[in-house]
């Protein structure tokens, strides 16, 4: 019986090792709410503010932040979608080209305060591509960055202005963000590589 208990404990530990939950649904909600408050505070309101989410979970997060901003400040903040595939620095280096999806920004970003939204900040290369892409679309007054999880290991001098949670990781680990809109459930998991 004792052996059975330790066996079960081992299994649970293995399970935990493989997939540790960093944020649950309430945790994500709290992070989104806090980021929205910080955006209002830092920008002294929401005038000229636009949110641009990076495909695909960044877009869902941007919509959630916009919903919170509506509650806080009463304003409808436009949300756009950015696909940075054509700006990636690893095109043509891997075998098959990644799928290009649409960028949908139905408003001008000229002279706007743009908050870029993504799920995980890691090497910073995606954000570099997003910055180049945004600057081809217009000349914003400023660009800020909001991420749900910052896992470190930057390869470029880029940092986030708003962070849901800082998570120290090793490069072998993976951070998975699950959102109801895409995955049917909310949660942030760390997976051992």
């Amino acid at each position: 019986m004792v052996r059975g208990f330790f066996y079960a404990l081992n299994l649970m530990a293995a399970e935990l090792n493989e997939k540790a939950q960093i944020l649950d649904q309430a945790g994500i909600q709290r992070a989104v709410t806090r980021i929205a408050h910080e955006i209002v505070e830092r920008n002294k309101g929401t005038s000229d503010l636009v949110l641009i989410g990076l495909r695909s979970r960044g877009v869902d997060l941007a919509r959630r932040i916009a919903k919170e901003l509506k509650i806080i400040d009463g304003a409808d903040i436009p949300v756009g979608t950015l696909d940075v595939t054509l700006y990636r620095d690893d095109l043509g280096r891997v075998g098959v080209q990644p799928v290009v999806r649409k960028t949908e920004i139905s408003f001008s970003i000229n002279e706007k305060r743009v908050v870029l939204v993504d799920d995980v900040l890691y090497t910073g290369r995606t954000i570099r591509a997003a910055l180049d892409s945004l600057i081809d679309l217009g000349r914003p007054r400023l660009i800020q960055l909001a991420v749900l999880v910052d896992r470190g290991h930057r390869e470029l001098p880029i940092r986030a202005d708003y962070v849901g949670k800082n998570v120290p990781t090793s490069r072998q680990e993976q951070v998975q963000v699950l959102l109801t809109e895409e995955d049917g459930v909310d949660g942030v998991l760390m997976v051992k590589g």
């Binding site: 595939t85 700006y87 999806r101 649409k102 180049d132 892409s133 217009g138």
Partner: peptide, 15 residues
């Protein structure tokens, strides 16, 4: 997706 690039002011991407 490429057609969207043609509708921009700056019609150039670095791909």
């Amino acid at each position: 997706s490429m057609k969207q690039v043609a509708g921009r002011d700056i019609k150039k991407v670095p791909a």
